[in-house]
Computed example of a mutant assay.
Amino acid sequence: MLLTRDDVLAAGERIGGRIRRTPLLGPGGSDTLWLKCEHLQHCGVFKTRGAFNRQLAALERGELGDAGIVVASGGNAGLAQAFAASELGIRATVFVPEAAPEVKVRRIEAYGAEVRRVGREYAEAYEAAVAFGEESGATFAHAYDQPDVAAGAGTLAEEVLEDEPGIDTIVVAVGGGGLYAGVAAAVRDRARVVAVEPELAPTLRRAMEAGAPVDVAVSGVAADSLGARRLGDLAFAAVQAEPPVSVLVSDDDIIEARARLWQDYRIVSEHGAATAMAALLSSAYVPAPGERVAVVICGANTDLATLG
């Protein structure tokens, strides 16, 4: 399925009033760089948009029963779904890998969701969540590869181009590709998308090379949020419709970008969120002269003690 801008606009109508319209931090002087501050979203992550859209759409369609919603997550999707469920009065069960950051797990539980730790990687938690949904009747919310979820994520790109219509390029981090799929749908034929991945988790790059989503080994500093083993089908459909600029960055690049976001902007970002900025700071992506670029800072759920 190929998401369209109409899907994104419908999501925007549905979730309006429940999510924050996050600021677009403009450039200083003659710079041509903007930062979409999605780290200021409810729960500190863009996924809150897709979580509300998924649950509200499921309510509209009569899909939600007493068992509520179930999601598998490295942390952020579970956090967002738990928050949305708490706001809407829906039961939530969140499956996370054993290595999920404690800062995220504690917050998921604080929103009233039940957390179940299963396996070493997201894929194992995913399998357990699907089985739980089949057994309990809970409605499954995918962390990234679901139309409602990806369309909700794309609403942030609509905001970018509404606030600054002259933006040429939007830079996003890619894990499973839900954010990328939503952004691509929102800006297709209006702006370029640069898709940035860690070298140690290149799901989109490998899918482009293979001509289809394929499993890849994932590791590295951003694996808690960008650690999906395989690019989602929605993201691959977006790749086929209009291939993005694909960029890979090293763990060192990501660590440096995260430090620079804190030092230069006082922006708290997790490693996954700093991945997009790493493309520019490391010169893995070099904008053309005068190119107007917006970088999505997509999450802030990190251990503050590690910022320095």
Score class of each variant (00 low, 15 high):
L3W: 09
T4F: 03
R14I: 09
I15K: 06
G16E: 15
R18Q: 10
I19Y: 00
R20G: 12
R21N: 09
R21F: 03
L24I: 09
L24N: 04
L25D: 03
S30E: 15
D31G: 12
L33C: 09
W34F: 12
L35E: 04
L35A: 03
H39R: 05
Q41G: 08
H42E: 15
C43E: 15
G50T: 06
A58G: 11
G62K: 06
E63I: 04
G65N: 10
A67L: 09
S73Q: 01
S73I: 04
N76G: 10
N76S: 09
A77E: 08
G78N: 03
A80R: 13
F83D: 11
E87Y: 10
G89D: 06
I90S: 04
I90W: 11
R91V: 12
A92W: 02
V94L: 08
F95M: 04
V96G: 02
E98F: 01
K104D: 04
K104I: 03
A110K: 14
A110M: 09
G112A: 14
V115D: 08
R116S: 06
R120V: 15
R120N: 11
E124C: 09
A125H: 07
A131P: 03
S136D: 05
S136K: 11
T139A: 09
A141C: 14
A143E: 14
D145M: 10
D145C: 05
D145S: 07
A151W: 08
A151P: 10
T155N: 05
A157M: 13
V160I: 15
V160D: 05
L161R: 04
I167F: 14
D168N: 12
D168V: 00
I170T: 05
V171A: 06
V172W: 04
G175H: 01
G182I: 13
G182A: 07
V183T: 10
A186S: 12
R188P: 10
R188Y: 01
L200C: 05
P202I: 00
R205E: 07
R205H: 06
P213Y: 03
P213L: 02
V214I: 14
V216G: 03
V216T: 01
A217H: 06
S219A: 15
G227C: 09
R229L: 11
R230G: 02
L231M: 02
L234T: 04
A235K: 01
A235S: 15
V239Q: 06
V239N: 00
A241M: 13
V247H: 07
L248K: 01
L248P: 04
V249M: 09
D253A: 10
I255A: 15
A257M: 07
R260C: 04
L261I: 02
I267E: 00
I267G: 03
V268A: 13
S269M: 13
G272H: 11
M277W: 13
A278P: 12
L280F: 09
Y285D: 00
P287H: 11
P287M: 08
V295P: 01
I297T: 10
C298P: 02
T302F: 08
D303K: 11
A305M: 14
T306A: 13
